[in-house]
Nucleic acid binder design. Structure first.
Lengths: 251, 251
DNA sequence: ACAATAGTGTCTTTCAGACAATATTTT
DNA sequence: AAAATATTGTCTGAAAGACACTATTGT
């Protein structure tokens, strides 16, 4: 098939965002309520069209700022801003009933607290527990709200994003993206526990993370915001690769 | 920005393939020579437009068959066919000088031997060492041919594909995708050595892979195709996850 | 006999996981 | 004092890396 750009089928290209944060010892995702059909009134991942002159990652960063007020720290940039990386691309022919839409999904990891709907067009946005969104209820049925699945194929996208986050904190320092600039070992451990949904031994965890050169840098300060004995404060060190990795217990 | 499908900017969507194989104890990629501008005469990754009614992975599998005669074993399917998985998506505004093209790259891992250009429109295709293609020459300068970089941003796509293959064989059984249906432990080890570009201890490697339950299944047969003492033949077992992983030595 | 590859066993070191014990705060 | 969290240390078992040794072929 000769490469004939004049005869290509027309596509719309969008970016969708899986924005994850840790709060209340659980993993939460940002969702927005759809104001128009299709899937009107349903929750969906934030996102929007890629403009004609912008790169994909630019579009993702723009949508992120528009819908949450967060700035991204695309790739290498150190401080200030959430981690942003490409997740995967979804392009089933009928995933949008109106037309052919290919969506490039991005994963954003952010510390807690950015109040949802800081600005932009998302008339109603909220953080929702990923367990609830994905129907991973424990069967007790108390989590009544939000059993309606997400719009489009956003269930699958969210699932892929959560799995990416879960596996990537094993061998990288990415878990620190869920923490404020300065944090304690205990806070970092609670991130791992929330993302993996397991309990980790505080003592072994402490030994592991403080014993990995370049992973954590002590700032000198201490805090007692968790109660109990004051804990040292750390910043994320330069090391982005965790070797040997911290493996999830007992899958 | 209201979700207005009637006003979307027009994009072309293509798939590009990073087809990797191991031969002569090195990692090779499939490249095709471009017959028309832009980048006429340059080598490029195989690929083409996504049709209006096909899924992205379908398009990748179709291009793969058209350009190599290989069948893919998308995802779970066991035997018969190369491994195919989505790699990443590239959409910089000027990556194709003619128009806005977003390309979804797929990674294909295949055993050796499929003679290139089994069929289709690629008038000239060949296997090229990834080291040569990516300019990782050792400085001795004997690899004269092919210092011209690949067309478009295919250098970056190839680099990403190679890195994905390198990291994924650490914690999965994916290295078996480079092997024929039946293979020896030594052949599997040479795959790891070629992909990582390191030497592994044959004895420790043997202990590791045969000691991981479900990773290798003995077929009963033996072969002597490598010379020396006959080696047991194995098939890939059901286990797709390698735990604990086989870590690359000494990055 | 010799070279080449396959496979087993042994030793040392590293590290994960279990858990005792101590330290420093709030209530 | 009691409860909560942080931190250090000790022990055990699993596994990686180094490497001696045996096994079975081709030349």
């Amino acid at each position: 098939m000769p490469y004939d750009p004049s005869a290509f089928p027309p596509f719309a290209v969008t970016v969708d965002l899986v924005v994850l944060t840790v709060r209340k010892d659980a993993l939460y995702a940002l969702v927005v309520r759809r104001g128009e059909p299709p899937y009107q009134g349903r929750w969906a991942l934030p996102g929007g069209f890629v403009r004609g002159d912008e790169d994909l990652e630019e579009a993702a960063a723009r949508e992120l700022t528009e819908e949450t007020g967060l700035r991204s720290q695309a790739l290498e940039d150190q401080d200030a801003g959430a981690h942003l990386e490409q997740l995967a691309t979804y392009g089933a022919p009928q995933r949008d009933p109106r037309m052919r839409v290919v969506s490039v999904a991005y994963l954003v990891l952010a510390p807690d607290l950015p109040a949802p709907t800081a600005g932009g067009d998302a008339r109603s946005a909220r953080w929702a527990s990923t367990d609830t969104l994905l129907g991973a209820g424990d069967g007790s049925g108390w989590e009544v709200e939000q059993q309606v699945p997400l719009a489009f194929d956003h269930d699958q996208i969210l699932r892929d994003g959560v799995e990416r986050a879960r596996s990537k904190i094993e061998y990288s320092s990415l878990a620190t993206a869920f923490c404020p600039p300065e944090f304690t070992v205990g806070e970092l451990r609670r991130v791992y526990e929330a993302v993996w949904g397991v309990a980790l031994d505080p003592r072994n965890f402490h030994r592991k993370v403080t014993g990995t050169p370049g992973f954590l840098v002590p700032t000198g300060g201490t805090t007692t915001r968790q109660g109990g004995r004051p804990a040292q404060l750390f910043r994320a060190g330069g090391a982005t690769l965790l070797n040997p990795p911290m493996l999830r217990p007992e899958v």
